[in-house]
Amino acid sequence: MDMVKNITELTSVLGVSGNERAAADVLERLFQKYTSDTWRDPMGNVYARVGSGKPVIMLMAHMDEIGMTVTEIEKNGMLRICPVGGVDSRVLPGSELVVYGKQTLKGVVGCIPPHLLNDSDKSAAYDIYDLTCDVGLSYEKVKEIVSVGDFVTFDNLPPLELKNGFVAGKTFDDRALGAALIEALDILSKRKLNCTVVCVGSTQEELGCLGAAIATYNVKPDMAIATDVCHAPTPGADPQSVVDPSKVSVTTGGNIHPAMYQMIVDAAKELNIPYETSVSMARTGTDAWNIQNQCGGVATGLISLPLRYMHTNVEVISVETLKNCAKILAEVPARIGDDWEDKLCWND
């Protein structure tokens, strides 16, 4: 399967937290290549089910993306914007944006030419609240198309292929893992299953993993694996906070059931996939946090794809590592045995 093609499709559509419908449409359509058993819920989560019987294993990737929203239309037609989720103001100047009004508009985040700046101007970082999005229209024309509250994203260019199988682009957090769910379904569709697998595209992760809680309530899984991105090394990053981009990150800690961690590690070893253990004492900052404590408790695991420059429009990932994430996601349910309940028991 062409994973980059799926990532391209998934990342080209709007899905700022709270408005994931377009992303859900694409994900559901891609899910339907493997199963007709797909559905949505009122929160916007999208589900795809394969297999039958116990245990029920939920695999999740969030569909929402960080972005911006319009807060004001200036008299000269330029837009003021504010962040939805963790947007770094410093990446915005000189960036191209897409404004999702009654029609989509190209926008440019303007910055003052260096000719007109003195040294003290240049020593202050730009703040999103001081920046403007220029759509090249007069106030009157903008008002017809754009209203306060409309969503804005980084330009949705197709991913850029770099050397050594790395690709750069926007919203790989977490649509890349959406592509991994599809690849996992592809693998699972060729295997005989002794369980039910429900793949979920979740909503509003960036605002506190709200979709994940609802989805867990709806699926009532016995086990779950959340998937997200983690940081790959970049200059200045704490070495303890990053994972080599050629390895799949497997998290352990309070948010993770030890047996789930072990099942993921066993799957990685079985498949000869390089992995690295990430330690998170408490909150993982992922859907796993809101899956674990639903429905009286769900055995939850977490695998993550290392990514450079998170929450920018040039997030960099290794496609090979992403494929490895998908293989592990499929392998855990595919090799589940009758002893699954024993494995989840606390044999203290």
């Binding site: 963790g86 020593s123 970082a125 970049t234 906070s241 420059y309 998170m310 960099v316």
Partner: peptide
């Protein structure tokens, strides 16, 4: 092809967020 990256916002201190790169 290449990209100009910078440290992710999650890994920045509040002071760093206001510092010019």
């Amino acid at each position: 092809p290449g990209v100009i990256g910078s440290k992710a916002i999650h890994l920045q201190s509040m002071q760093e967020r206001k510092t010019v790169l």
